[in-house]
Amino acid sequence: MAISVPAAGNSGSGNVETPANAFRLAFIAKCHRLLALGYNSLDSKTLNSAEETVITGLLVQAINGLIEDENAPSWMEPFIANDDPPQNTPGRLGKRRRRIDIEMVQMQKGARPRFLFEAKRLGRRAALKAYLGQDGLNLYARGEYAREQVHAGMLGYIQTGDPASWAEQVRSALASDPKKHSVEGDGGLIPHSVVTELAFTYRSRHTRAAIGLPITVIHTFLSFC
């Protein structure tokens, strides 16, 4: 099955039903809107051979620049984007802790909403394997990242090809071996519009047997070519 480009409009689609869902959807939409604004402020074409850490660093810098702008809209004010923060997981301490690429936090009293993005470059030969593998999507499925969250994000920095074809490759890989990727029932990759500013967003759902809390992963493909 080919994946089509998600239709524009109806941003933040999802099941509201409970206040928790409503707040999560709103927060996730804001995180993705910041991501889109940061991405749009970069000269993306010049980064078509840049390292993943270089792109991530520039993206975070751009996002924080927007947040800290004197004329930033009020909804941005409580946000902060962290570049490469260590993640606390059982069995890993100090420098041995894994580092997520981008963490977005809403600063407020009490527990702070967080959204994590793990990024991978998509362009070279083994890129798909890296995107889905032990140091990619599988980190969420294993519960090493986002242990306390039910939503998280994957970023595909596309340096060769186009977003739709990469999305199709990811969908096909998840569908061909759902057990390997802990895909939950019908939770394969499907188009999922988060904000209108991002055209290529998808979602997949994964069981996390190790921690007993399933996770929905939102995949965003950003073109750098």
């Binding site: 409970t18 928790a20 869902n21 707040f23 927060f27 407020q108 009490g110 527990a111 702070r112």
Partner: peptide
């Protein structure tokens, strides 16, 4: 918001 968001399971 914090309590609903983070403990709403």
């Amino acid at each position: 918001i914090a309590e609903i968001f983070c403990q709403g399971h």
